[in-house]
Amino acid sequence: MNEQAMQSQVGAETPMVEMRGVNKWYGDFHVLRDIDLKVSRGERIVICGPSGSGKSTLIRCINHLEEHQQGEIVVGGVPLTQDVKRIEQIRRSVGMVFQHFNLFPHLTVLENCCISPMWVQRKPRREAEAEAMKYLERVQIAEQARKYPGQLSGGQQQRVAIARSLCMHPEVMLFDEPTSALDPEMIKEVLDVMVELAREGMTMLCVTHEMGFAKTVADRVIFMDQGQIIEENAPEPFFNDPQSERTRLFLSQILGH
């Protein structure tokens, strides 16, 4: 019900995610500095930057896994506040995929996908399982549904994690370095799923160093350094004609070899 109520508030022109003057500190360390970001419905954004530049922190603020101290974050028209109910409501419409998959090791693949639809959205088991199987088929892992995460390879686990998020029917998907913990031969299978998802029009924010992926699917690429957005552009000009010296240096470092 909540999601529907939320959707009805949101016109087509309302941004899916909007950040205005967001600042965050870890103790004395200023991780996010005056972040302004608007993501429209269906837009695909890739965020890159050196480690420690605050890119993970930025997307983790969107579903309040990290708390920002200043500024405003609005997700699907709903402003993010301290209110626990509000936060849970926003989290139900924001899917997240983690670097280390974070599947629940005590549950089977199918149970991993069903647990939140069943306990949070109160769907009957049969319905939740049928839908989970649909998404598991989409990420081409349905035959592993009865196995435990510990029995799967890294790439398979990450595909399950994507399916688990999709089972909640999110309106935005956040990807926090989804391929960084994978062996090289498994990166492609995860990227393929993400490209597929982008083609279907999912709103996506991806923190990744996969520049090939950025070139193929991104509408905008954002470069961050020291907690600030340094450069923000469409992929074509971003890669071919970076404006900032720091962006140029970063790109030459990761594309150079």
């Binding site: 849970e88 139900r92 997240m96 629940f104 005590h106 909640m168």
Partner: peptide
């Protein structure tokens, strides 16, 4: 229990007691 377990449960919209009762405590 790694912190990521609770984060993943939170990201799926689970409340504190569900995160504890379904994900963290069983493990």
């Amino acid at each position: 229990i790694p912190k990521g377990q609770e984060e993943a449960a939170a990201a799926l919209g689970m409340s504190y007691w569900r995160r504890m009762g379904l994900i963290v405590l069983p493990q």
